[in-house]
Amino acid sequence: MNTDLLVSTLTHVVLLPPVCLLLGLLVGLSLLRRKPRAGRALAGVSLGLLLVLFTNAGARLLIAPLERLAPPLDLARVEGAGAIVVLAAGRLEHAPEYGGHDIPDLTALARLRYGARLQHQTGLPLLVTGGNASAGHEPKARSMARALRDDFRTPVMWVEEASDTTFENALFSARILKAAKVQRILLVTDAMHMARAERVFARSGLQVIAAPTMFYGAGPLTPLDFVPSASALQKSYYASYELAGLAWYRLREAIGRN
């Protein structure tokens, strides 16, 4: 397992809410007898943060700084672009209604929809990128390409299916595109993911025009945004992961790693 994938896995499992906050709560409770003040403080802070991040209002505190870095695409800026690149997300495994094939999950589907829209508007060729193949599971990019062709009636020029991380998405896609004499691209991914993705694609030597989709922080707050929900916690988790990933990439750059 490469370093990026190891960091990603550890971050997913341990370092993000709700697991990190649940661990903080458990540690705080375990300290109550020996160090009651410290135990109450740790348990209280952990529980309070957990309740905040269980609401859309709380999730927006994490989402906002990421989405400010990724304004919507202005089509007037696409001049000179040679391709559209759509990044993979998750997958639904062995979908029975699709003959048992893996299919893109809702996040990936939203990216594909916007990528198809841009392809229809601009006529630019599409590249889809994403690997994570394993026994019984094809690379994500392959199922993405099938969805674009069959469901969105959108042609796909290139399929990059060896990458496991966003860093590798950029590295391997750049090799394909540079061989095709493409230097300037429209990059499609979630608004929260865009800052990290744009950073590594630019470092791969490509000129990047950000084309973000799925803005979770748009629109005014309503009373329901202060009501705890599982979907709000999922957004908090996603934003936390992207903030951690962006910090990791900045650390890599600071210590001189490619």
Rank of each mutant, 00 (worst) to 15 (best):
T55L: 04
N56G: 11
N56W: 06
N56T: 15
N56P: 06
A57H: 11
A57C: 12
A57Q: 06
G58Y: 05
A59D: 10
A59C: 08
R60I: 07
R60K: 14
R60G: 05
L61I: 13
L61Q: 01
I63N: 00
I63Q: 08
P65C: 06
P65S: 08
L66G: 11
L66Y: 03
L66C: 08
E67N: 09
E67R: 12
R68V: 11
L69M: 15
L69N: 04
L73Q: 00
D74M: 03
A76Q: 14
A76F: 05
R77S: 15
R77E: 15
V78E: 01
V78H: 05
E79P: 00
A81V: 05
V85L: 01
V86Y: 11
A88W: 07
A88I: 11
A89C: 15
R91D: 01
R91M: 12
L92M: 12
L92Y: 12
E93N: 05
H94F: 08
H94A: 15
A95E: 15
A95V: 07
A95T: 06
P96M: 08
P96T: 15
Y98G: 09
G99S: 12
G99N: 08
G100K: 08
G100L: 07
H101N: 08
D102V: 10
I103Y: 02
I103N: 02
L106C: 04
T107P: 00
T107S: 09
